[in-house]
Each structure stands twice: as C-alpha cells, then as structure tokens.
Amino acid sequence: MELASSLASAFDPSPLQDTCVAIDDPKAAVFVNGKFCKNPNLTVAEDFFFQGLNIPGNTENPLGFNVTTVNVDQIPGLNTLGISLVRIDYAPYGQNPPHTHPRGTEIITVLEGTLYVGFVTSNPENRLISKLLNKGDVYVFPIGLIHFQFNVGHANAVAIAALSSQNPGVITIANAVFGSNPPINPDFLAKAFQLDKKVVEYLQAHF
C-alpha cells in the first residue's frame, strides 16, 4: 500500500544575498529570487527609507479610519525581506472593518486610544477571539484569518502594525462580496447569506 501526500505553502522567499532592491527596468537589473533587482553594489540609503509615518491619516470617510501602508511599493529594499508595516488611524468610533491578509500574519501595537479587536477562527468552529486593547498593548492576527479593529473611545486612536510579508495583501470582506466587479449574482448571494434579494441589491449598490 502506497501513501501519497502533498503540501502546499506560500510565503515570501528567503533572500540569497544581502539586498534585492526591487526595480522596474530589467535592463538595469539582475534576476535574483524570481525578481528583477537592482545591482547590490548600486543600492543607496533611499532604497530602505520611508518618511512621514508620524503624519495622521485622513479618517473623514464613512468608516472613520485610514491605513498608511509601508510595503515594498514604498520601500523597494523590502523586496524578499518578508516584512512590512502600516499606521492605522481611527476617528472616534471608527473601525477597520472585517478583512484578511492572505499572505501575512499581523502584529498590532496601540499607540493611542482604546481598540476592541478580534479575529475569527476557520470553519467549522468560527470562534471569535477578541480583546480590548489600550495604549501599549499588542495583539496578533494569524495569517489569512478574518479580523477587525474598532475604536471604542471618545478620542482618536492610533496603532502601528507589522506584517510578515513585503506585500501581505488585503481583502475587505464586504467590499469583496458586495463590491466585486462584475457583481456576484444577487440570487446567489441572497441564498448564501440568507438575505432578501432586495437587501443584497441595496448592499451591492453601496459598495
């Protein structure tokens, strides 16, 4: 009797040299770890630098939050290093709605304010694991799981989060389901979410 098994995993590649600064022009690059990279001898400090994370983001939107992203698009030197970060600003009662990062675990630190945060485990348990965080508190959202943050305070809140990918991606659940392009068939969504079709069409119109 033969046993067959397979294992699939996705993660940022381990670097095979000190730096692999991403570059768009293949003519001025070398090909390393599946990416076009600047010649390591030509790297400069600016390839590893970002300025302005001290500046609050604009939270004047329906959800009352803003994410300032610092990934490989902002710091080319992050290429192959498997890490990035974000600043998250929350207006009073603002929220970072349920979302996932398909390629990265997130660890968040509250700098100001009070946040109610949580994540939901995978099927079939779908267990909510949540916590109230204050200034200086740290919380982890495991890779791929739906999670959220909600400012429960009367004042602005700020957090910094690090992610275990140079480009972890983000899928905001409501946007993806009700705001897809082209739209998902409303009859299907009505049955999937056990909603009236008119409610689904209303949600699709708003996303």
Rank of each mutant, 00 (worst) to 15 (best):
R103F: 07
I83R: 04
K131M: 12
D89W: 06
K197G: 06
F178W: 02
T43V: 15
I146N: 03
I160T: 14
P186S: 14
S5R: 15
F148H: 06
E2I: 13
E201C: 13
G94S: 08
V110C: 02
D25E: 15
I146L: 13
A161V: 06
H147Y: 10
P142K: 09
N79C: 05
G169I: 02
G94D: 08
L85R: 02
N33G: 10
V30S: 13
F207T: 13
N167P: 00
N126W: 04
D89V: 11
S122C: 09
A8K: 05
L3D: 04
H101W: 10
L145M: 10
N71C: 10
V21H: 05
N185S: 14
V177Y: 04
G52Y: 02
I160Y: 13
A22N: 07
P15G: 01
G179F: 01
F207M: 15
P98S: 13
F65I: 00
L163S: 01
I171R: 10
K131N: 12
E46H: 15
G153F: 12
G144S: 11
H101L: 05
P56D: 11
S14P: 08
T105V: 07
I108M: 09
K27E: 11
I88Q: 13
F50G: 01
G153N: 04
N33V: 07
D196C: 09
N175G: 09
V177Q: 08
T59V: 15
I173G: 00
D89F: 14
K38N: 05
A91S: 15
N126K: 06
T100P: 02
P56Y: 13
L3W: 08
T121P: 13
T109C: 00
L189M: 08
T114E: 15
E112D: 06
L85C: 12
K198P: 08
L85W: 15
N33Q: 14
P168L: 03
R127E: 06
F150E: 00
E106M: 00
I83C: 01
T69Q: 09
L115A: 09
I146R: 04
A192S: 06
V86W: 09
Y139Q: 01
A8W: 10
T19E: 13
A190Q: 07
E201H: 11
P40N: 14
V117T: 15
S165C: 10
M1K: 10
V120L: 08
N96Q: 05
A161E: 05
I75F: 04
V44N: 06
G77C: 08
I108T: 11
A29T: 01
I83F: 01
S84W: 01
P40E: 09
F11K: 10
T43D: 03
N79K: 15
D89Q: 14
H99A: 05
N167R: 06
V120Y: 00
G57F: 07
T19M: 01
T172Y: 11
V70H: 07
F207Y: 15
T59E: 12
P15I: 09
T109F: 00
P98H: 14
G34K: 01
I146V: 15
Q166S: 08
V158K: 04
P62D: 06
D73T: 02
K191T: 03
K35F: 14
L189Y: 06
H154P: 08
T68W: 06
G57T: 02
L195W: 00
A192F: 04
